[in-house]
Design a protein around this nucleic acid. Structure first.
Lengths: 333, 333
DNA sequence: CTGAAAGCGCTTACAG
DNA sequence: CTGAAAGCGCTTACAG
């Protein structure tokens, strides 16, 4: 046993009376080993409770079996659900995850990636907010990187994205069919690709007769609550919130003002988090395919690690869920 | 540059015309180095964009600068908030985190810890559900482990815990003062230490005249919703939900049944997540000190890494927040 | 102050 | 089939 009290491959080797090379072969399935010997090794390893040092394995083999994940905000359930799904898939393949929180800061995002590069096999980038040139820098280095929910035509990286644009356009079609013409979009962060895509979808809805204005907001209940008064000044019949949390805030405030949802005003969210269907009225929203995004991200990264050819963009559909927070447009003032 | 395309310390050394030992000293501040030489090294490292391989550093120095974190459910915002807070503190000290999700499974919890042991400097265990004997096994090995929100008198581990017992007792005192006598506790997982502590607090409230029965529930909106009918059969005047999400479900269901909160029945939660104050009525709950738990966990672990003596238990107060979902008890049937 | 060398715990050609 | 040895990219006594 080494001085710091942890077992090494030498302990197992001497316990089993074989060389460390044999121990390594038995435990990793490399080469062929005499079955009796193999059994002795397994037995010794089991008795001692030996587990190989991953850092040493990585160094020796050149494969660390670990991937770095950079997240804008670990406190946001949306990212956590994607992270969880990716982690489940990755750990089934024997990979562990080193997680960094960039606190929504583009610089920290890049520096976290750079730091991880020398000792991970690949990197998963969730909703990257860094500059295009920084993304290009990452695309140029030898460690595979997969970008989730951020697409850029000028970046050569596998990109797994929810189809925010089509989803939002679909949401608008639903509103148009209910007679809505003038809506307000409560926007998320301008650095967020998803926010830009949603706004693009809303603008495209002009083709179905929807005119929209933007009011700055954010991805929280409080932000939705706070932005509602300004939204209502625009004499709209529907408010499209950046996400479900903000929509929750909108509904709370709208009711405080004595208005009814959806009779006086329709409200929509985005993501379909658990509480969406429990709100009163239940929220019309868009299902953000978090599980598929996480799995797709891992599958893309794994393919890249194996040197397989993969499509540059993997768009994942985001279906609209119509509930009770949207209804026929009232006549405007 | 090595064959896999990543820079090594040798690249920097030859670029700067010095030995790798000198590069190491300059970059780590070990020993004294001639300033002109040091400048050349820094310049070369900067120009090449060199970053040391953490696995190699860990192997050579015996300190991996990484800690393992085992979480029951990465999809639960409660754990994420603690994780985020601990990560912020740890990364300020130069430590990274390897995160494992045990999916609420005690066996996976233990095996995740065992796997991490050979290549991390310490382990953070959130709301461990494993058996006492397994915890004892972890306490016995050389890598420091800190347990968050799980206390056991028979385990010799630093334990950072929210004072669930006192908080729940306090919550009951508040209800007693409003005339409540008979309440229902919608319980969380029986494997959860926090659940057991909350129930202990409620039982202790017998001293202030509160009688309670337990109805099985869980930590989600849906579970709260589903358990409400059974709770109401117990002819109580207040329902104490395991957490805020469940309380949300309770309120939704109670209103569907035509009852008013708090006029007909009082409802409380636990955690004070963001939506708690946005519910109608705003929820009386308990602040779960997630930030302090995360920070406290890191400080304890850091102290252990430094070999400092630390108190075995660090209890963190959980203040009650009284809002509008609790009111005077109605006369019972 | 600086460098050559040993060593961290593994894997993997290379001999035999 | 098995072991001795080189090497992964670093750090750190040890000489000088």
């Amino acid at each position: 046993m080494s001085s710091n009290g942890r077992l090494t491959i030498h302990d197992v080797a001497s316990e089993a009376g074989v060389s460390i090379a044999t121990v390594s072969r038995v435990l990793n399935g490399g080469g062929t080993v005499n079955e009796a010997m193999a059994e002795k090794v397994r037995e010794a390893a089991g008795r001692l409770g030996y587990l190989p040092n991953a850092a040493a394995q990585g160094l020796a083999s050149g494969a660390y079996r670990s991937i770095g994940v950079v997240v804008p905000d670990l406190g946001n359930p949306y990212f956590n659900d994607i992270l969880k799904s990716a982690m489940t898939a990755a750990s089934a393949d024997g990979y562990r995850m080193i997680v960094s929180d960039s606190r929504g800061n583009p610089d920290e995002e890049l520096s976290a990636c750079r730091q991880q590069l020398p000792y991970v096999d690949g990197i998963l980038l969730l909703s990257a907010r860094m500059q295009v040139t920084d993304l290009q820098e990452l695309a140029a280095q030898p460690v595979p990187v997969v970008s989730v929910n951020r697409k850029d035509r000028n970046v050569d990286l596998p990109m797994v994205v929810a189809d925010n644009y089509s989803a939002t356009l679909e949401l608008c079609r639903h509103l148009a069919a209910l007679g809505h013409e003038r809506v307000v979009y409560l926007a998320g962060s301008p650095r967020s690709w998803q926010n830009r895509e949603r706004w693009r979808g809303i603008k495209a809805a002009k083709s179905v007769g929807i005119t929209a204005v933007t009011v700055p907001c954010d991805a929280s209940v409080q932000a939705g609550y706070d932005s509602t008064d300004e939204a209502l000044e625009h004499d709209c019949t529907a408010i499209l919130a950046f996400n479900d949390l903000a929509a929750f805030g909108v509904i709370t405030r709208v009711r405080e003002l004595g208005l009814r949802v959806p009779k006086d005003i329709s409200v929509t969210g985005f993501d379909d988090i658990e509480i969406a269907r429990h709100l009163r009225p239940p929220l019309t929203t868009v299902i953000s395919p978090k599980v598929q995004l996480g799995q797709g991200a891992w599958l893309s990264l794994r393919a890249a690690l194996r040197g397989e050819k993969i499509p540059r963009t993997l768009p994942i559909p985001s279906p609209v869920v119509i509930r009770k927070s949207t209804g026929r447009a009232r006549a405007r003032a």
